[in-house]
Amino acid sequence: MSTPVTSVTIESLTTACNERLEATYVQAKDISGGCGQNFEIIIVSPMFEGKSTLQKHRLVNEALKEQIALVHAFSQKTYTPAQWEALSQQ
């Protein structure tokens, strides 16, 4: 994974989450209206187990460091598989 990140796509975000965060589910959305600099992402990963929101977000910030540096705005929701399961039941 040494290719420099030059632009951010839903695919690259999803790949990074799968590879670096062992995500079981990723839903990335481009909400920029075309400029590709505003993303909203939902990440479900067992790595979030037992972590505070701040710790989870720090994990994501680290894993997606190159991508976040390139975008204007980035919003994240992070869930453990159990939390996500409970949420989808509602």
Binding site: T6, S7, V8, T9, I10, E11, Q27, A28, K29, D30, G34, C35, G36, Q37, L70, V71, H72
Partner: peptide, 13 residues
Amino acid sequence: MSFLRTATWALRP
């Protein structure tokens, strides 16, 4: 999941 938008991605100016 919306993979529909595969527009050209603008680089940060």
